[in-house]
Deep mutational scan, measured.
Amino acid sequence: MIINNLKLIREKKKISQSELAALLEVSRQTINGIEKNKYNPSLQLALKIAYYLNTPLEDIFQWQ
């Protein structure tokens, strides 16, 4: 199972779901689904999230 800290990191950086979704060219619902662990992002999307949040990938997504 993958645990993610996306919501915590996104809120710490004061970025809304809508703003992050626009940067990543995905829907706000996609961001919401990832934050709620409804599904895991593709590797490409995970890397883009880490890039736009300027945060190491392993700080956002962790195996458990």
Rank of each mutant, 00 (worst) to 15 (best):
L57Q: 04
S42H: 06
E19N: 10
S18H: 12
K48N: 09
T30F: 13
A46N: 02
L23K: 12
K36F: 11
Y51N: 14
L47P: 01
L43H: 14
A50C: 07
P41I: 08
A50W: 02
L53M: 07
K7R: 13
Q62S: 10
N40G: 15
K14L: 12
S16F: 04
Q44T: 13
S42P: 15
L24Y: 00
I34A: 01
L23Y: 14
N54W: 05
K38Q: 14
Q62A: 09
R28A: 15
S16V: 04
P56Q: 12
K36R: 12
T55H: 08
N37Q: 08
A21R: 03
A50K: 03
K36M: 15
T30S: 07
L47K: 15
A21C: 06
D59Y: 08
K7M: 10
A50G: 05
L8Q: 12
K13M: 13
Y39F: 15
N37T: 05
I15P: 00
R28Q: 15
L57C: 05
K48Y: 04
T55Y: 06
Y52I: 15
N54R: 11
K12F: 09
E25N: 14
L6D: 00
Q64F: 06
I9N: 04
M1F: 07
T55S: 09
L57M: 12
A22I: 12
L6E: 01
W63R: 04
Y52S: 08
K48Q: 12
S42K: 07
Y52A: 12
K14A: 13
I34C: 02
N4W: 02
I34Y: 04
I15G: 01
F61R: 00
E11L: 10
N54P: 00
Q44F: 10
Y39N: 09
E25H: 15
I15T: 05
K48I: 04
L24M: 09
L20R: 00
S18A: 11
W63N: 04
K13E: 12
N32Y: 10
E35S: 01
N37F: 08
R10P: 00
L8D: 15
R28V: 15
E58Y: 10
P41K: 01
K14E: 11
K48G: 07
N54G: 11
F61G: 01
L24N: 03
K36N: 15
E58S: 13
Q44A: 13
L53W: 03
Y51W: 11
Y52V: 15
E35H: 02
Y51I: 10
K38D: 14
S16N: 09
Q64G: 09
D59E: 15
Q44Y: 09
Q62Y: 06
L53K: 00
E58N: 14
L45G: 02
N40A: 13
M1Y: 06
N4V: 03
E19F: 07
P56Y: 04
I49M: 07
W63E: 04
K38G: 07
L53V: 04
N40W: 06
A22D: 13
L47G: 12
Q62C: 08
N5K: 08
A50S: 11
W63T: 05
Q17K: 10
